[in-house]
Amino acid sequence: MAETARRTFALEGRSYDGDGISLAPAGPASRISLRAPAESLAALSEALGLDLPVRPKASARKNARAALWLGPDEWLVIDEGGADLMAICARVAALHSAVDISHRNLAILVSGRRVEDVLNAACPQDLSVARFPVGAASRTVFGKAEIVLWRIGEDAFHVECWRSFADYVFGLLDAAGREAVR
């Protein structure tokens, strides 16, 4: 039997460390797009081991797993440990839709003192801690690409985008990051 296929990453070898900002591709993770009506949340939360958030822009996190509220019946569930989220959801009888998007999305970790300024080079949302607190998550735009922003620390964001947009998103972050500070 032929050897098992190797995985290649869209942002292999890309990173940037500059004054007050650093960019690094996140490692692989399992991801699903989870869709479900309110009645199913208890069962799904139990299966996933975390409470699916119901407030806009909220997220829930437990160990390597997180669920980000993206819409009133939509969550992005990420497991950095690579757990089989599809299998977990398949065991839930309650009405829902789970679709594997582990390879559709990838993440870039953007961190440092200037993180808000760098993201605000192309994201029009108010990213101040008051309006976008630690734990907040939102689908939004970054220049001409769609991204999911998730604030994982005062000075750190997890930025998700689709695979083929990663070069653009990283390139734009890199350009904004290199921009000399006043």
Binding site: A121, G143, D167, Y168, L172
Partner: peptide, 15 residues
């Protein structure tokens, strides 16, 4: 602004 050259718009490439 940044929207010039390779950042003018996303260039999507397949694996």
């Amino acid at each position: 602004g940044h929207s010039r050259g390779r950042l003018f718009e996303p260039t999507r490439r397949t694996p």
